[in-house]
Amino acid sequence: MMTHHPYDHHFNGNEWFVIGMIIGGLGLIYFLPKMYPLLTTLFFLLMGPYLGLVFDHTLAVLPLDLYDVGDSPGYSLFDLLSYTMYAPFGYIFIYFYEKLYIKGQATVIYIIIWSLMAILLEWMCVKVGIFRYKNGYKLFYSIPVYFFVESLLLLLYLKFFKIKPRNHN
Rank of each mutant, 00 (worst) to 15 (best):
Q105E: 15
Q105W: 14
Q105V: 14
A106H: 12
A106L: 15
T107Y: 06
T107W: 07
T107P: 02
T107I: 14
T107S: 13
V108A: 13
V108G: 07
V108T: 13
V108L: 12
V108E: 08
I109K: 08
Y110I: 03
Y110V: 03
Y110D: 01
I111S: 02
I111K: 00
I111D: 00
I111H: 02
I111V: 11
I112W: 05
I112S: 05
I112H: 01
I112N: 02
I112K: 01
I113N: 02
I113Q: 01
I113G: 03
I113S: 04
I113K: 00
W114Q: 07
W114M: 13
S115V: 04
S115P: 01
S115A: 15
S115T: 13
S115R: 02
S115D: 04
S115H: 05
S115L: 07
L116Y: 10
L116A: 11
L116C: 09
M117S: 14
A118F: 09
A118N: 05
I119D: 13
I119W: 15
L120Y: 10
L120M: 10
L121Q: 13
L121W: 14
L121F: 13
L121P: 03
W123Q: 11
W123T: 07
M124C: 15
M124A: 15
C125G: 10
V126H: 09
K127G: 11
K127F: 12
K127R: 13
V128Q: 05
V128D: 07
V128W: 07
V128C: 05
V128P: 00
G129H: 06
G129D: 08
G129M: 07
I130M: 11
I130W: 08
F131I: 07
F131L: 10
F131E: 05
F131M: 08
R132V: 09
R132M: 11
Y133I: 03
Y133P: 00
Y133T: 01
K134H: 11
K134Q: 12
K134F: 09
N135H: 09
N135C: 06
N135G: 05
N135W: 06
G136M: 03
G136I: 00
G136Q: 01
G136W: 03
G136S: 02
Y137G: 07
Y137Q: 13
K138Q: 13
K138E: 12
K138R: 11
L139V: 00
L139R: 00
F140W: 11
F140Y: 09
F140P: 02
F140S: 10
F140R: 08
F140D: 09
F140V: 10
F140C: 06
Y141S: 01
Y141V: 00
S142C: 04
S142V: 00
P144K: 02
P144C: 01
P144I: 01
P144S: 02
V145D: 03
V145N: 03
V145F: 07
V145H: 05
